[in-house]
């Protein structure tokens, strides 16, 4: 897998997070994962198909997901990951993946994305359809979003 596939996702986050009210968005650690993505508590899966096939697992702690959801809803307090907060997080990953797909398209790669599946629970892990995947941390106002990108 070409490491360059992460760039459209990084650019998408850099582009979208400020629109949602985040001030400081930076790239954190980059690594290669093998076999399993260990969930931090909330993991959102979005599938890619057409000229690029794979899965993205967006990984958050519950506290981070709630803080992001709160910011997205213009500061509304979020005490539990209720329906509204779930919908906000799911919409965030949809926006980021959709934005990345548009960037791929500009580079000549047609990409179609699936609706997000929000996976919530304790102690679970995931396989993202490729044995090796790229892991990049994005930090928005000290909140860490981990992207696990597995492309076939």
């Amino acid at each position: 897998m070409d490491v360059k596939v992460i760039n459209p996702f990084i650019d998408a986050i850099m582009n979208i997070m400020p629109q949602l009210g985040f001030q400081n968005v930076v790239k954190g650690k980059l690594s290669v994962g093998e076999q399993f993505v260990e969930s931090k508590g909330i993991t959102v899966l979005v599938g890619l198909t057409d000229q690029l096939r794979g899965n993205i697992a967006y990984n958050f702690t519950e506290a981070t997901a709630m803080s992001i959801a709160s910011k997205m809803m213009m500061g509304m307090p979020v005490a539990t990951l209720d329906d509204l907060a779930q919908s906000a997080i799911s919409e965030l990953t949809n926006m980021v993946t959709g934005n990345a797909a548009t960037r791929f398209e500009k580079d000549g790669l047609r990409v179609d994305i699936s609706p997000p599946s929000l996976v919530v629970g304790e102690n679970f892990k995931l396989k993202v359809s490729s044995a090796k995947f790229l892991v990049v941390e994005m930090i928005a106002d000290s909140l860490v979003i981990e992207l696990n990108i597995g492309i076939e």
Binding site: S39, S117, L118, V120, G121, F124, L126
Partner: peptide, 12 residues
């Protein structure tokens, strides 16, 4: 994608 774990909620 494969999810491994019990009592995990999958929400759309």
């Amino acid at each position: 994608s494969i999810i491994i774990g019990e009592s995990i909620a999958i929400i759309n």
